[in-house]
Simulated scan of single mutants.
Amino acid sequence: MNRKHGFTKFVIVVPSVAIREGAKKSIEQTREHFASHFDGVRVNDFVYDRTKLGRVREFATAADIQVMIFTIQSINSANNVFYDPNQEALGDQAAAEWVAKTRPILLVDEPQSVEGGLRGAGRKALEAMQPLVQFKYTATPVNPVHTLYRLDAFDAFQLGLVKRIWVDGASVRDAANGPYVQLIDTEAKKGQAPRAKIEIHKQFASGPKPEQVWAYDVTASKTCQAAAQSTPG
């Protein structure tokens, strides 16, 4: 965006301190890589600190590429110092006003957490910076608007971007603590309901043990007996 369009003001907003530190670390680790690919152009990045508001003014007035990293918690309350115009270090202008004048490119990580819903405080904080455009990155979009790029779990796996996890199951053989039924034999006699001899685990005082029993349909058995009794000798 800087090479093609000349944009120099970028704001990264994340949902937590841990992710903020990860974003800053990623920039540090890739600084030399991108400098080598973009004619030595370097990114000047910093984490927003309410006790160092002068850095916000430098962000707004510097001519080089500036990247400011926020956690949404640091700016999402109305009485936050970010919106206080009575700041000597900022020429009696609020930090939010300095940022808004630059019309920054806003990069939002996990917007469903950052924004706090359609009317959330986080969404209002983002709008206060009057970004020229917002790019939102999430695996679980709640209110998708214009999808520029989609990378689902299958594509990520195919591209080798995620770790492969093999899942296997385990079972215990010859264990007596689960359901067990085994067919041993069947029997069908005239005038009697068909029945089956099965082996089951039966609970005894000393524990479960296999035992063979006959199983049959009680209703069918009674029907067969009634039919046999009504048949003339």
Rank of each mutant, 00 (worst) to 15 (best):
N2Y: 14
K4G: 00
F10Q: 05
V13W: 14
V13E: 06
S16H: 11
A23T: 12
K25S: 09
S26L: 11
I27W: 15
Q29W: 14
E32L: 06
A35N: 01
F38H: 11
V43P: 02
F46N: 01
V47H: 04
D49M: 09
K52G: 06
V56A: 01
V56K: 05
V56P: 03
E58S: 05
A62R: 10
A62P: 00
D64H: 15
I65C: 00
I65P: 05
Q66H: 05
F70S: 04
T71M: 07
Q73E: 14
S74E: 10
N76F: 14
S77W: 15
N80K: 02
E88D: 13
A89M: 11
A94S: 14
A95K: 09
A95L: 02
A100H: 04
A100W: 05
K101W: 15
R103I: 01
L106Y: 15
V108C: 09
Q112G: 02
S113R: 02
E115F: 13
G117V: 10
R119T: 05
G120P: 02
G122K: 13
L126V: 05
A128R: 04
Q130S: 09
Q134L: 01
Q134I: 08
F135S: 01
T140G: 02
V142N: 10
T147F: 12
T147W: 15
Y149F: 12
L151D: 10
D152I: 09
D152C: 07
D152G: 07
F157G: 01
Q158T: 03
L159K: 08
G160C: 06
L161N: 10
I165F: 14
V172I: 13
R173D: 05
D174L: 05
N177K: 06
G178Q: 14
G178C: 05
Y180L: 03
Q182L: 02
I184Q: 03
T186M: 05
T186R: 10
E187S: 05
G191H: 10
Q192D: 10
A196P: 08
A196F: 14
H201T: 13
Q203M: 12
G207L: 11
P208S: 15
K209S: 12
V213M: 11
K222N: 03
C224Y: 09
